[in-house]
């Protein structure tokens, strides 16, 4: 949408904008789920038990958190409308809607997502399916994402002054850009003689 969501009462004039934003993220989450399912079915990561099952469970948790988070935010305009219809102040809605019970699973989900995306890039490098730039780039951004999610979890989204930039690494699209770069690394790796 090339702009952050407008969480004010103005959103109710165009709820379709936020709906579309989260429909796109849903599609990305489905692609992620599809990708993970193919890899585990084909055992592309060449894992043995119990690591294979541990990673599969982490992928499922990451996927489940995405679906839950995107559903929650997809329904934001409807929640805001109900809130204002009850005569409450629209400015107070965001704190009520994205409360600590949403922040905890959201940040935990982000920790899992960044961890598995980093693991994925490292594993693919070990298997010589991507070049070194892929895990380096993924781990640099992924670590920032992990720091961001941890600080958000600890401070309950009240980032200390000067650390607001960490919000940038908390937006839902960041794990997807890391996956995109992994896709670029996979598709641009030259064929090795033994493959």
């Amino acid at each position: 949408m090339a702009a952050p969501p407008d969480l004010s009462i103005v959103m109710l004039q165009h709820p379709e904008r936020e709906h579309f934003r989260y429909i796109v993220l849903f599609i990305a989450a489905l692609l992620f789920g599809f990708y993970a399912a193919i890899q585990f079915r084909n055992n592309t990561f060449q894992l043995t038990n119990p690591l294979k099952w541990i990673m599969a469970v982490l992928f499922v948790l990451a996927f489940a958190e995405m679906i839950w988070e995107f559903s929650h935010h997809y329904l934001y305009p409807e929640g805001l409308k109900k809130w204002t219809d009850e005569g409450k102040n629209a400015d107070d809605f965001v704190k009520s809607y994205d409360n600590i019970h949403v922040i905890i699973p959201g940040a935990t989900g982000r920790l899992i997502q960044f961890s598995i995306v980093m693991w994925l890039a490292i594993r693919l490098y070990q298997l010589r399916k991507v070049k070194i730039w892929s895990p380096v780039l993924t781990c640099l951004i992924g670590l920032m994402g992990i720091i961001s999610a941890t600080v958000i979890l600890v401070t309950e989204m009240h980032l200390p002054k000067g650390f607001e930039f960490l919000f940038l690494f908390f937006i839902p699209g960041i794990p997807f850009i890391l996956l995109y770069w992994t896709g670029v690394a996979l598709l641009t790796r030259e064929k090795l003689p033994h493959n």
């Binding site: 949408m1 090339a2 579309f20 934003r21 989260y22 796109v24 993220l25 599609i27 990305a28 692609l31 992620f32 599809f34 990708y35 193919i38 890899q39 592309t44 839902p172 699209g173 997807f176 850009i177 996956l179 995109y180 992994t182 896709g183 670029v184 996979l186 598709l187």
Partner: peptide, 14 residues
């Protein structure tokens, strides 16, 4: 593996 991962680029324009 590449294409689904690659196509997640879509989410960046949300």
């Amino acid at each position: 593996g590449g294409p689904p991962s690659f196509l997640s680029v879509l989410s960046l324009w949300e």
